[in-house]
Design a protein around this nucleic acid. Structure first.
Lengths: 226, 226, 226, 226
DNA sequence: TATGAATGAGGCTTCATTCAT
DNA sequence: AATGAATGAAGCCTCATTCAT
C-alpha cells in the first residue's frame, strides 16, 4: 500500500489544480453522510465514491480501506462536535446560569447534529472497537468535561450546588440529550411524535434543564430557576 | 409460496420428532444474539443457521428472508421486555415507592437485557423502518405506560407529585436507563469505566432514581426518599 | 417411487370422497396453465400445488416428478386439440369448401387455445425432447392429416387442385395459424397491434384462407372463392 | 452503482491488455448461445461465465443482472438480423423479382440464424416483456418493412401486384419463414423430417415463394414466376 | 390418501478491493 | 494524482424433492 506522505491541512498549493486537503475533506463529508445514514456495513464504498468529487481509487489512496475511512470519519465527527462546544463561553456566568446554558446547548447541539449521534450509535453497535484504536479520538475528547468541572466547582463553592461528580453529571446530561435524537424513531413509532414537534422539543428541553438543576441544586435553587 | 401457514404456539405433540415451535424459537434466539451482536447487515445468515439446531433452509421456510427474520426477532425482543414489565406489581405501593421501584426496575432490566437495547439501537439505525411495518410491535407496546399513568395519577391525587405527563416521564426514565447500556462502550472509552463497575452502577441507579423523584415530587418529598 | 397402480379415467367411485381421476385432471389443468404461462423451468411446483385442490405430495405421487408432470400436460394439450379437430365434419363438403373450412377452423382453433400453442412453443424450446419420449403424443397425432389427405385427393380428382403434398399443406396452414398466436407479443410490439384486433384477425383469417386457396387451386378457382 | 458508464465502441487501444468492447461482445455471444439453447430461466449464469473469456463478476459489471444481460442479448439478436437485411439491395430489381428475392432471403436467413429465432421464441414465451422495456429494440426494428413497402408500391404501380398491406405481407413471409425453424422439432417429431432435409428445405422455400407470389400478384404473374 | 415439516444442492448477486495505464 | 476495468470471496435466496405422521 503506497499511502500518501503527510497530508497537511494546507489546501490549494500555488497555481495547481490539485487540492489534496479539499479532496479528503470532500470524501470525509460524503462518507459521514453515508455511514450515518446506513451504518458501517450498510454503507457502500461505491456509493460513497460516486457521491464524491473524486474516484474510488483516491479513497483507498488516502484512507487505506473502509475501516480506515470509517475511523477517520468518526474522528472528524467527534472533532466537529467538540469544536462546537469550545465556542461556548460560560466562565463569566454564575454557576446555575452556566449549567443551564450548558444543558441547553448540549440538548440543542445534539439535536442539530444527528450525524454525530448516529456515528456514535454506530460505534457503540461496534462495541467501541474503532474508537479504541484511535488515539486521535481520545485526544479530541480529553477536555470534554473541563467546563463542567469548573461549573460544579464554582457551584459548590457558592453553596448552590450539592457535591456531584462532573463526569456523572455529564453522563446525565448526555443521556437525556443523546436519547432524544438516537431513539426518536422507535419512541415516536410507539408513543407518537408529540415530543418531537418543535413545540414538544422546546418543552422537553426546558424540562431536561429543570431535571438537571433540581438534581444538582440545593433546594432553594429550584424556586429561582424552574 | 412454500412457507408455512400460521404456526400455532402449540409445541410438541405426542412423540413427534418434529417441533416447529421449538425450531422457530431456537432460530429466533440465535438470530437475536447475532443481530444484537453484529447489526442487521453485519449479521450473516450462514452464521445464524450454523448456530441453529436446524438448517438455513428452514429459516427461509419460516421467516421468508433476512428482513422477515429480523422483524420477527425485533418483535420478540419487545415482547420479552414488555412481558417482564407486566410482572411488576406496583398497585399496592404508595406512589413514591411505586415510582422508585419502577425506575429501579427499568434501569436494572435494561442493563440485564443488552440484546434488547441493541435491537432497539439497530432499529433506530434503520430509522424505525421495520417496526413501522409491524403491527405486532405496536400491539406489544400498547400498554407500556399504563402503569406509569396510574402512578402519576395516584401521586398527583395525594399531593406528592407535580403534574407531569406520563409519556414524558417514561421518556426521561427510558433515556437514563437506555443510554446506560447503549453508550457504555463510547462513554467508558472516553471517560473510563468507573460508572460501569458493579459499584458504579449501583450508585448510578440510586442517582437516577433520585433525579426522577426530585423532578416529579413536590419539594418536601425529597427529604423522605433521597 | 411407489407410484399409483392403474388410474382409470373412471371418476368418482361409489360413495367415496376420493376421486383420483378428478384430482389428476385438476392437477393437469392447473399445471397446464402454469407451464403455458411460465415455461418449463419458469413454472414452480409450489405454485402449481397451491393452485391445486390437492397437495404437492399428490403431484409427485401421480406424476413422479416435474418432468413427468410436464410430459403428461403436453400429452393432454395435444389430445385436447386433436379431439377438437375430430369433431370437424368435412366429408360432405366439396373440396374447396372443405379446405376453406379446415383453414378457418385451424386458424380460429389455434387462436382460441393459446395454452396449446404455448405448450408447443415450450416443447420446441426444449428441442422436442419430451415429446420424443412419449408414445402417447405420437399416437394422438397419428391421424392429424387424414382429413387433409382426403381433401387433397378429392380436390385433385375433381381437377380443382394442383397436386400438393398433404403434409406440406398442413405445414403451410399450421405455420400461418401458429405464428399468429405464438409471435403475437413480439410482432405487435414492433409493428403495432392492428392485426390483432378482432377486426384485424378476421381480415387476416380471410387472407390466410385466400393465400392457401390461391396456392392450392388451379387458376380459375380463385375467382370463385376470393 | 459500480457499473461502467457508456462504453464506446472503440475497441483495443494501443497495446492494452484490457478490451471492454471485446469482453462485452464475447459475453454477449456466449450468452446468446446459452439463452437460445436453454431459455431465460434455463440458462445458468455460471455456465455462461464459464464459457466466457472473462469472469462472472464482469457480466454483472457490464450488464447488471441476468435480465439485463438477456435484454442486451435480445437487442443484439435483432440488430444482427436487421443488419443482415440491410445488406440486401433490391432497389434495382423489378418488383416481382425483388419480392422473390426478399422471401428467399428471409426464409434462408432465418434458417441460418436459429439463435435469433429461438431468442424471439423465448421473448414470446415471456410475453414480450423485455422487448417492451427496450427502446433499442424498437429502434432497431423501425426500418424493417421499408423495403417491403417500396416493393409493394412499385408492384402496384406497374399493375403486377394487387393492393396489399406491407405489414401484413411481412407477417405472412415471417410466419412461413419463422415457423420453419421454430417448430421444426415438434413438426418433424410428428410428421417426420422429410421437409427438413436439404432437399426438402429447398422445395419448401420454392413453394413458400410461390405461395407469396400467388397471393400478391394479379393472375397473369403466376405463369411468369411459378 | 393426505399434509406440514424438512432438506441439499445450486441459483443469482454484491461486496470491498486491486490492476493497468 | 487519477481512472475505468477487473476480481475472488462470500452473501442471500430458491428450487425440486422427500420425510414423518
Amino acid at each position: 500500500m503506497s499511502g500518501p506522505g503527510l497530508q497537511g491541512d494546507k489546501a490549494v498549493r500555488g497555481g495547481w489544480k490539485q487540492d489534496p486537503a479539499g479532496v479528503q475533506a470532500n470524501i470525509i463529508a460524503v462518507a459521514m453522510a453515508e455511514f450515518a445514514m446506513n451504518g458501517l456495513s450498510g454503507a457502500r464504498m461505491d456509493e460513497i465514491a460516486a457521491k464524491t468529487r473524486t474516484s474510488k481509487r483516491m479513497i483507498y489512496y488516502y484512507f487505506g480501506d473502509k475501516d480506515g475511512l470509517y475511523r477517520r470519519v468518526l474522528e472528524e465527527a467527534y472533532r466537529k462536535v467538540r469544536d462546537g462546544e469550545q465556542r461556548l463561553d460560560l466562565d463569566h456566568l454564575p454557576p446555575v446560569e452556566a449549567l443551564k446554558r450548558l444543558v441547553e446547548f448540549t440538548f440543542d447541539h445534539h439535536s442539530r447534529h444527528p450525524e454525530f449521534i448516529r456515528m456514535v450509535m454506530i460505534e457503540n453497535i461496534h462495541h467501541g472497537a474503532y474508537m479504541e484504536q484511535s488515539d486521535a479520538i481520545r485526544a479530541v475528547n480529553a477536555g470534554a468535561i473541563e467546563k463542567l468541572e469548573d461549573i460544579c466547582r464554582r457551584g459548590r463553592e457558592s453553596g448552590l450546588f450539592r457535591p456531584v461528580e462532573a463526569v456523572e453529571l455529564h453522563w446525565h446530561i448526555s443521556a437525556l440529550s443523546f436519547f432524544n435524537v438516537s431513539n426518536r424513531a422507535t419512541f415516536s413509532g410507539i408513543f407518537g411524535d408529540a415530543l418531537f414537534t418543535p413545540a414538544g422539543q422546546q418543552t422537553l428541553m426546558r424540562h431536561v434543564v429543570e431535571m438537571i438543576l433540581r438534581y444538582v441544586c440545593t433546594p432553594p435553587a429550584l424556586e429561582r430557576h424552574a
